[in-house]
Simulated assay, not measured.
Amino acid sequence: MIVDGFFIAGAILCAVALILGVVATIIRDYPDDFALISVALLEVFLVFYGVSAAIRQSGGHPIAGEPWEFWGYLLTALLIPVLAFIWAVTDKSRWSNTVLAVSGVIVFVMLFRMEQIWDGAIAA
Rank of each mutant, 00 (worst) to 15 (best):
S96C: 09
A123G: 05
I86L: 15
V105W: 03
G60I: 06
R56W: 11
D4S: 10
G60P: 14
E43K: 02
M110R: 13
L75G: 06
A40Q: 07
D33R: 10
L83F: 09
V3Y: 06
G72T: 13
S38G: 06
V22W: 12
L36N: 00
L42H: 01
I80D: 14
L83V: 07
T98Y: 10
V89R: 11
W95Q: 07
C14Y: 00
D33N: 10
G10A: 07
G65H: 14
V47C: 10
A88D: 08
V44Q: 09
E69L: 14
N97D: 01
P81C: 04
L36V: 04
W87N: 02
G104H: 01
A53Y: 05
V16E: 01
V3K: 12
L83I: 09
A121I: 03
G65A: 10
F108K: 13
T90C: 11
T90I: 03
P31L: 12
L41K: 01
M110F: 08
L18G: 12
V105S: 02
I2H: 07
I117R: 07
A15P: 09
I106Y: 06
G65W: 05
V89S: 05
V105I: 02
F85T: 12
Q116V: 11
E43L: 13
E43R: 14
A11W: 07
L20P: 11
G60T: 07
M110N: 08
V102Y: 00
C14M: 00
I106G: 01
V109G: 15
I37G: 04
I8Q: 04
I27S: 14
V3W: 04
V39Q: 08
V99Q: 09
G10F: 10
F85A: 11
R28V: 03
Y49H: 05
G104T: 02
A88T: 03
A77H: 15
L41D: 00
E43D: 14
I106V: 10
V47I: 13
I86G: 10
F108D: 12
L13E: 00
V51G: 09
G50H: 03
I19C: 03
P62C: 02
G60R: 14
W118S: 03
I63M: 08
E69A: 13
W95M: 14
L75V: 03
F7P: 06
A124E: 15
S52Q: 13
Q116A: 04
L78F: 09
G10E: 13
M1A: 08
I26M: 13
S58D: 09
F34T: 04
A77E: 09
I26Q: 11
L13G: 00
I19R: 07
H61L: 03
I106D: 12
I86F: 07
E115S: 11
V16I: 14
P31Q: 05
L100R: 01
H61D: 12
A15M: 12
D32H: 13
E115Y: 14
G59I: 01
R56F: 03
V107Q: 10
V22G: 12
W118C: 06
I27D: 09
A35R: 00
I8D: 00
A40G: 07
G72Y: 10
G65R: 15
A121E: 15
I2L: 01
V22P: 15
F48R: 04
D32T: 08
D119W: 05
A54R: 05
A9V: 14
A54P: 05
R94G: 04
P67I: 10
Y49G: 06
A40K: 13
I27L: 13
A121N: 08
